[in-house]
Computed example of a mutant assay.
Amino acid sequence: MTSRRETQLLARAAEYSAAALRNIRKEFPNDIRSTMRFAGDFPNRPRDLYPAFYGCFDWHSCVEMHWLLVRLLRTIPDAVPADDIRTALNEHFTADALKGEAETFRTKGSRARPYGWGWALMLHHEIAGWDDPDAQTWSANLAPLSAAVTDAFLGWLPKQTYPVRTGAHNNSAFGLSRALPYARSQTENPALLTAIQDAATRWFSADTDYPAGWEPSGADFLSPALTEAELQASLLSRTDFAAWFDRFLPELPAALLTPATVSDDSDGQIAHLRGLNLSRAWCLLRVADSLPAADPRQPLLISAVEAHADPELDHVSGSDYMVEHWLACYAVLYLTAGSRDQAGRAPQRAET
Score class of each variant (00 low, 15 high):
Gln348Ala: 13
Glu64Ser: 07
Asn141Gln: 01
Thr239Asp: 13
Ser172Ala: 15
Arg202Lys: 03
Arg340Gly: 01
Ala219Pro: 04
Gly167Thr: 09
Asp314Cys: 01
Gln197Lys: 15
Phe38Trp: 11
Phe38His: 07
Phe93Cys: 00
Ala307Leu: 08
Asp134Glu: 02
Phe38Tyr: 03
Trp138Gly: 00
Tyr115Thr: 04
Cys56Gly: 03
Ile24Gly: 01
Thr107Ala: 11
Arg5Asn: 01
His272Leu: 07
Ala271Asp: 03
Leu121Ile: 06
Asp314Thr: 03
Leu73Glu: 03
Cys283Ser: 15
Pro29Trp: 10
Leu236Val: 07
Leu285Pro: 05
Asp84Leu: 13
Gln342His: 12
Ala350Ile: 08
Ala309Cys: 04
Ala350Asp: 10
Gln342Asn: 10
Ala95Cys: 08
Thr7Asn: 11
Ala11Thr: 12
Arg4Phe: 09
Phe153Pro: 04
Ile127Asp: 02
Ala120Ser: 15
Ile24Val: 06
Met322Val: 04
Gln232Gly: 02
Gln269Asp: 10
Ala343Lys: 02
Ala343Trp: 06
Arg106His: 11
Lys99Val: 01
Gly109Ser: 09
Ser263Leu: 06
Glu312Met: 15
Thr150Gln: 10
Glu91Asp: 15
Gln348Ser: 12
Val287Thr: 12
Trp67Glu: 00
Val316Gln: 00
Thr258Arg: 14
Leu73Phe: 00
Leu192Gln: 12
Arg106Met: 14
Ser177Arg: 11
Ser223His: 06
Ala304Gln: 04
Ala102Ile: 02
Asp132Asn: 10
Ala152Met: 01
Leu300Tyr: 09
Pro311Ser: 13
Arg280Ile: 08
Phe241Asn: 02
Arg74Val: 06
Pro250Met: 07
Pro347Phe: 06
Phe204Cys: 05
Trp214Ile: 14
Thr352Arg: 10
Thr7Arg: 15
Ala14Asn: 12
Glu215Asp: 07
Ala219Ser: 14
Tyr210Arg: 15
Tyr115Gly: 09
Ala229Tyr: 08
Ser177Glu: 09
Asp267Phe: 05
Pro158Asp: 09
Asp198Thr: 14
Ser61Ala: 15
Ala331Trp: 00
Asp207Gly: 06
Trp138Val: 00
Arg345Lys: 13
Cys329Asp: 03
Trp59Ile: 10
Cys329Gly: 05
Asp320Ser: 11
Pro347Tyr: 11
Ile85Lys: 12
Pro224Thr: 09
Phe38Arg: 13
Tyr321Glu: 12
Trp214Asn: 14
Glu351Ser: 15
Asp48Arg: 08
Ser61Thr: 10
Leu49Trp: 10
Tyr16Cys: 01
Gly268Arg: 08
Thr104Asp: 01
Pro292Leu: 06
Ala152Ile: 02
Pro250Leu: 06
Arg238Val: 13
Trp130Lys: 03
Arg4Glu: 15
Thr150Leu: 04
Ala95Val: 02
Ala229Arg: 08
Pro158Thr: 11
Val332Asp: 00
Pro29Ile: 01
Pro46Ala: 05
Thr107Pro: 03
Thr239Met: 11
Ser17Trp: 07
Tyr50Val: 04
Arg247Asn: 12
Thr7Glu: 13
Asp314Val: 00
Tyr334Leu: 11
Ala52His: 00
Pro292Ser: 04
Val80Pro: 05
Arg74Ile: 08
Glu230His: 09
Gln342Glu: 12
Leu176Thr: 09
Ser339Lys: 13
Glu228Arg: 15
His60Asn: 03
Phe174Met: 12
Ala225Ile: 07
Ala309Phe: 02
Gln160Thr: 11
